[in-house]
Design a protein around this nucleic acid. Structure first.
Length: 419
DNA sequence: TCTGGGGTCCTTTTCCTT
DNA sequence: TCTGAAGGAAAAGGACCC
């Protein structure tokens, strides 16, 4: 039963709608996509990662013709049989119980859980699902910011129904639509800005919907550790701890001038704003890449002189891949650079800016080769990378920044057919 | 015992020009 | 010719994120 508008003067036609920003995070994205393909692995410890690629997966060739869902569990490769470099990209909950998790070396993981099934990373497949769930979202709420393969921000503010139940209704609709279209679940946080929405989306995983209002700052945000702020990493966390600051609430009580002194003008001021839940960044629907790069870690450490031929072939291959990426995406770049990682894990970069932007393999290879000559090549190398920056559109065009059309009908009405 | 691959953004250093 | 300040661009490194 709706109250007449005349007794609700604050909701007049002239008052701006409350800013409602959603952060959507797919639940265990890579693992969930793999389980759609291999449902027989449900509940088993599965680890995704390693250097192997899908196309040389012996498992698939051996079972060519057999539906993937019918490949016997016993046939899947195990962590204990893996030899070589690499890290875990993600692990299922069943695998995490053994103490293995993202970013752990595979050799260490094999000791903790030798029987875990090891699947290679299949970015092509994840990107396919990524495009699908994002298409579902923009059908409903067009102002969406891409934040990588499994995450987006969505501006609910102007979407009809976006204000209903503080955004919960629209969040529920999006969740259901994504599940219906892909079989995948996600978590959504709705808040007055991106900073708080990102934190809110983690409150209720998986399949969660959380709303954080401006007045919830003290109760819901301040008790959290500073590390929960998107932008506070391990280094900043350590530095904060060293100052006796553990929670966001403790951070909020510190004098901004003091924070600036300790953390620098930009980062110190930002930390203070973040602790008070303030963030006015818009949801950005279009963006241009700044650089395109390719890098690879070798099977074994290589020496510039003793492994010259092998290194040269890898180097050329990297340049070719970067050039192909540039062409495929329609960009040229002026700044050519290389990245080296030595056997002691130290990394260095060298770069050089050309007169003319290019996407030509030979030009890239020549400039990158000159960069290489400026680096110390007496140590053994574990990684080599090639990068092209200062990008411009190859055809000289400027990006389309036209505003997204907001639908006029209320999509949440689907959830409330009687409303 | 190890520690991937793509990115962005910021700070500091270096180099060049005036 | 040397010295120094100032400012900008390019180069290098590092933190952070997914």
């Amino acid at each position: 039963m709706l109250a007449p508008a005349c007794v609700l003067p604050s909701v007049s036609a002239t008052s701006a709608p409350v800013r409602r920003i959603a952060h959507l995070d797919m639940d265990a994205f890579y693992a969930s996509v793999e389980l759609l393909r291999y449902p027989q692995l449900q509940g088993l410890p599965v680890v995704i990662g390693g250097a192997r690629r899908r196309d040389d997966d012996a498992l698939l060739s051996r079972h060519a013709g057999l539906p993937l869902a019918e490949i016997p569990v016993a046939e899947f490769p195990r962590l204990k049989d893996y030899a070589g470099r690499g890290v875990i990209t993600t692990a299922t909950y069943a695998a995490r119980q053994f103490g293995v998790g993202s970013a752990m070396g595979l050799m260490k993981a094999a000791r903790l859980c030798p029987q875990a099934i090891l699947l290679p990373v299949d970015f092509e497949e994840y990107r396919k699902y990524s495009r699908r769930f994002k298409a579902v979202i923009t059908e409903i709420a067009p102002v969406m910011e891409d934040r990588g393969v499994d995450e987006v921000y969505i501006d609910f503010t102007e979407v009809p129904g976006g204000q209903r139940d503080a955004g919960r209704s629209l969040a529920r609709l999006i969740q259901k639509s994504i599940f219906d279209a892909t079989g995948l679940s996600c978590s959504i946080g709705v808040a007055p800005n991106k900073l708080l929405a990102k934190m809110a989306s983690e409150f209720n995983k998986p399949k969660g919907i959380s709303v954080v209002l401006a007045e919830d700052l003290q109760a819901l945000i301040w008790p959290l550790p500073c590390r929960k702020i998107n932008g506070v990493g391990p280094k900043a966390e350590e530095k904060l701890k060293a100052q006796g600051i553990y929670t966001i609430g403790e951070l909020a009580t510190r004098d901004p001038a003091w924070l600036v002194k300790i953390f620098g003008r930009s980062y110190g001021a930002w930390l203070h704003e973040a602790a008070w839940g303030r963030d006015n960044r818009p949801v950005v629907t279009e963006s241009e890449p700044v650089s395109i790069s390719r890098e690879t870690t070798f099977e074994r450490d290589l020496h510039a002189v003793r492994d010259k031929a092998e290194l040269g072939a890898i180097f050329t291959r990297l340049c070719e891949r970067v050039a192909a990426d540039l062409r495929a995406k329609g960009y040229v770049g002026r700044t050519i650079g290389i990245k080296l990682r030595y056997d002691d894990f130290r990394s260095i970069t060298r770069d050089q800016t050309l007169e003319q932007a290019t996407a030509d393999v030979r030009t890239i290879r020549r400039a990158a080769g000159q960069c290489l000559q400026r680096a110390d090549l007496t140590r053994r190398l574990r990684l080599l990378g090639v990068r092209v920056g200062a990008l411009a559109r190859a055809d000289g065009s400027t990006p389309d920044t036209s505003r997204k059309e907001i639908p006029r009908h209320d999509p949440t009405a689907l959830l409330f057919p009687d409303a």
